[in-house]
């Protein structure tokens, strides 16, 4: 009667040992393969060191950069690609264009484009990532299609960024932007960052988005995207949003608008400083200090008595930044440490 539990136990133990043995075998196999690949990559890079020296030395020449002489094994090509991608990402301007042209010449773009149609998701994502780095303009539409399959997954941002880098026309960028807004309405900052990685100027797109006044997300993304830029075209539309019904939009618009403080009439600035939203009061007061605006000190003193902590904080900070130019000693006391910008 004792045999029965023994048999059962034996089955369970067999199953467990097989699973772990198989797992470890796979683990060591993977490690061996990776170690081997790493070693061969290292060797290839060493072998082609002169080639990279040639690239660095002649990247500013008039002639296009040539692929390395002789036949390349797939491993060599992969090694060269890895280094080229690394360079492309740190180097900008004209030289980047020459390196991406070299990638095209080496057949890397075509190769990754094929992998874009792979049945394996991981391969597709990796291909998309690399195409983005290589600025493969001809693949933008395919990348956008791939993006549509991604939906709400976090890999969508990888594909999205690549599409932004590859985008050649504003239409493509618009498609990308609208898609990201639709599927990731909350990731507004990240979307703005992705769009900013494009070589195109997204300002016209954002101004377009501002016209979708009834939809909160696009307007918010546009306001975020326009903050930190200096585009007089945006000034008009921004001005309107200060009186938006949505608080989020009002605040973002005020932030963006205060970038153009030189274009803001004084009365308008005064409105902002006495606005009913404390967030707007705070950013307006902060801007006075930051831009050293010639503004009535009295308003800042009023700000020091504001009910909201941040407004008081920035009033003190701004007073300190404006320097000792005619304002009460009190501010100095309160803002001596005010450098908490």
């Amino acid at each position: 009667m004792w045999m029965e539990p023994f048999d059962q136990a034996a089955t369970v133990l067999y199953a467990l040992s097989l699973t772990s043995a198989g797992g470890f075998a796979a683990l060591f196999l993977l490690r061996a393969r990776r170690g081997d690949a790493d070693e061969r990559t290292r060797q290839s890079l060493e072998k082609h060191q002169d080639y990279f020296a040639y690239l660095s030395a002649n990247i500013d020449g008039a002639e296009p950069l040539l692929p390395p002489p002789g036949q390349l094994s797939p491993i060599e090509l992969k090694a060269i690609q890895s280094k080229l991608l690394e360079w492309i990402e740190t180097i900008g301007g004209e030289y980047r264009g020459r390196l991406t042209a070299l990638c095209r010449e080496l057949g890397l773009v075509e190769q990754e484009r094929k992998r874009l149609r792979s049945p394996k998701h991981a391969v597709r994502i990796e291909a998309a990532y690399r195409l983005g780095i290589m600025r493969a303009e001809q693949c933008t539409d395919e990348l956008l299609q791939l993006l549509e399959q991604e939906g709400g997954e976090s890999t969508a941002f990888v594909v999205g960024r690549s599409a932004a880098k590859c985008a050649e026309t504003l239409d493509q960028l618009r498609r990308l932007l609208l898609h990201l807004i639709e599927y990731h309405p909350d990731a507004q900052q990240l979307i703005a960052d992705i769009i900013a990685s494009s070589s195109l100027d997204p300002a016209p797109l954002y101004i377009e988005l501002l016209r979708m006044e009834d939809r909160e997300t696009p307007v918010c993304v546009a306001l975020i995207g326009l903050t930190g830029r200096n585009d007089p075209d945006a000034f008009g539309p921004l001005n309107r949003f200060i009186s938006s019904e949505c608080k989020e939009i009002r605040i973002k618009a005020a932030k963006a608008l205060l970038q153009y403080s030189h274009m803001l009439p004084m009365e308008r600035l005064g409105d902002l400083i006495r606005h009913s939203d404390w967030e707007i009061r705070a950013v307006a007061i902060k801007a006075i200090g930051e831009w050293q605006l010639d503004f009535d000190i009295e308003a800042l003193n009023e700000g020091m008595a504001d009910e909201e902590w941040w407004v008081r904080h920035y009033s003190a900070a701004s007073l300190a930044q404006l320097g000792p130019a005619g304002y009460p000693d009190r501010a100095f006391d309160l803002s001596a440490e005010g450098g908490t910008r």
């Binding site: 994502i125 960024r161 703005a192 900013a196």
Partner: peptide, 23 residues
Amino acid sequence: MLSIVKSSVNSRYRELAGSEYVP
């Protein structure tokens, strides 16, 4: 889980490290 892994492997963090949009 795979989705998280894939997106983190295929991202460059240095890019974001200098972005004005990072909170």
